[in-house]
Amino acid sequence: MNIEQILRTPQQLRSKAETDTINTYLTAQLESAIAAADEPNANKWALLSMIFEAQMDYLRVYALFESEEYYAAWCLLERIEIAIKGIFRLYQFVEDEYRIKFIFEYIRKLQSLFPYKVFGSSEYIKEIVRCGICNELVTLRKRCGHVKGQLYMGKMCVHEIEQSHFVGMSIVDVPFNKYSVMGVTSKTDDSYHYPQIEYLMSVIDHPFNEWQTKNYKIFKPHREYQTGRNEKCPCGSSKKYKSCCLTKPGIETDHTDFLLTYPTLKSKLKMNQLKNRK
C-alpha cells in the first residue's frame, strides 16, 4: 500500500471499505513497530495515523452538514482542531504535503459560520495528575521525564487528571472548550439556525474547494419590519428603533459574501438558475 500517496490525496473520495482498509494497515504497522520495540517507527506510524484520522474527520464534518447535524459537526471541528495542534507539535511540514494546514485553516473558517455566541466554561482545580505513559504522579518538582504532547512508542503523552475539584461555571463568549454551547445538545435539541452553512453547502462541490468570506453591514428595507418607533431596534442594538436604525437607510444587518476561488458545478448551476428567473 502506498500510504504516502494516500495521505497526500485526502481530497480523493474513498469508500468506507477503502478507509477501513487504510486504518487497518496503519494500525498493523504501528503494532508491528511496537512489538519490535522500534520507537522511531512506532512514533512515525502513530503520527501518520493521526494525520489520516484528521483528514477523515474533516470529511465527516461535511457529511454531518449534509444530514443537518450541525452541533455534532461543531464538536468534531473542535476535536480535529485539537488533534492538529498536536500534529503541529510533532511534525514540521515542508509545504502542506498532507493538506493538514489547509484543514486547520478551513476549520477556523467553518467555525466562523456557526451562529453560536454563548458558551458554558467550567472551572476546576487539578488536584492529582498522572502521566499517561508511566502513570507516575506529576508534580511541579518531581517529574517522570515524559513530556506532555510527545510520542513514546507510538503513544502520545497526556496528563490524566485523577482528582479534580469543580469550582464553578461561567458564561463566556470566547470559550476554551468550544463544545459547551448554550442551548443545544443534539440535532433534536437545537434552536439555532445555520443559514451560512446551508448556503456554503449549496455552492461547494467538495470539502477541499477553496473559499473565503467577506463580512460587512447592509441595510435591509424598513418596510420588511413591523417594528414600532419606541420598540427595540430590529438590528439588536437594544436602543429604541427611532434612536437607532430608523434614522438610517434601513436596518443595519450583518451580511456575508462567499467568494469561491474557482467556480464549482453547484455555483454555476445556481448562477444559471438566477439568470433563468430573470
Binding site: 482545580i125 463566556v172 470566547v174 476554551f176
Partner: peptide, 17 residues
C-alpha cells in the same frame, strides 16, 4: 522557583480563552 510546596501545587483551569 515557585512559592509553593510541591505537594500543594495545584493548577486552576478556568477554560475561558
Amino acid at each position: 522557583e515557585a512559592a509553593i510546596n510541591d505537594e500543594d501545587y495545584h493548577e486552576l483551569s478556568l477554560n475561558s480563552k
